[in-house]
């Protein structure tokens, strides 16, 4: 069978989701952000939430998320995405409101907003991309940076006596009563992508059902910040990040 016989519209089983538009993404080659954007676009299309979804974009690498997914977006000040999401969801309770934040945005400057939004049990979804580094500003140490990990501001590795311990936000959010679903996923293999997709789907359903705050942490790579190739970054993540940030559901009520 020739390739021309296979490549026909009726045989197509996978294509770029309709809601992901044709703009060229500014992310570095191999960045996990692209995969998560793709999952979100697919899910919103599959769940028919195109007119109901409102995303809150953060400050960080995902600051231009509104350029790539064709839904309504609001750009928040640094770390304040859960606060804006609270307002949007309270004013428009029929909409599906989610924030998309990195670890510099959510775990450093936005910790207060995140924990209080979860504690109030706001019916929003927080998608948390944890790559252990400030990617956009050039690879500085983030609260989630692993001990011993070299970054621009910890050139000899992160030290406990100087920089403290890595912060596990998902455990903190799981501990408050308002959160209903807290899970940690990754997107480095096809199986992991499918699992992450079903986790985000569940979170979106929780938001529409009004069950409380859902947080989906995606442990991801920053190959530019980590100074590795995309494939090596995935390996490094499995070997090092997963020990500190184990996969799986932390809370599911």
């Amino acid at each position: 069978m020739e390739l021309n016989d296979i490549i026909k519209p009726e045989n197509r089983v996978y294509q770029k989701p309709r809601l992901l538009n044709d703009n060229h993404m500014h992310y570095c080659p191999g960045c996990s952000h692209g995969v998560v954007h793709k999952i979100i676009a697919e899910l919103i299309e599959e769940m028919g939430l195109e007119d109901k979804a409102i995303g809150i974009a953060p400050v960080g690498c995902a600051v231009f998320a509104y350029n790539y997914i064709d839904i309504d977006w609001i750009e928040a000040a640094h770390g304040r995405a859960p606060a804006i999401a609270t307002a949007v969801k309270r004013l428009q309770p029929t909409k599906m409101v989610f924030t998309y934040q990195g670890d510099g945005d959510l775990a450093a400057i936005g910790t207060c907003e995140t924990i209080h939004a979860a504690n109030r049990g706001e019916n929003i979804v927080i998608i948390f991309i944890n790559n252990g580094i400030y990617g956009m500003t050039g690879g500085q140490m983030a609260p989630t940076t692993l001990l011993g990990m070299k970054t621009a501001t910890t050139p000899y590795g992160r030290r406990v006596d100087l920089n403290g311990y890595p912060l596990r936000i998902s455990e903190l959010v799981a501990a408050v009563d308002g959160s209903c679903y807290v899970t940690r996923q990754s997107v480095h293999t096809p199986a992991a992508v499918r699992k992450a997709k079903s986790a985000i789907k569940k979170a979106f359903e929780n938001s529409m059902a009004g069950k409380g705050t859902s947080l989906v942490e995606i442990v991801s790579t920053c190959n530019s910040g980590w100074k590795k190739s995309p494939a090596d970054s995935n390996k490094w993540m499995v070997e090092n990040m997963f020990a500190k940030y184990p996969m799986g559901d932390l809370k599911n009520v």
């Binding site: 069978m1 016989d5 296979i6 490549i7 026909k8 045989n11 197509r12 089983v13 996978y14 294509q15 770029k16 989701p17 992901l20 993404m25 992310y27 080659p29 191999g30 960045c31 996990s32 952000h33 692209g34 995969v35 793709k38 997107v187 480095h188 293999t189 096809p190 992508v193 499918r194």
Partner: peptide, 16 residues
């Protein structure tokens, strides 16, 4: 598998 992990959604898959 290739299409799922592609960060830029640039792969279309056909099956017969």
């Amino acid at each position: 598998s290739c299409a799922l992990v592609c960060p830029d959604a640039c792969i279309e898959v056909y099956r017969v």
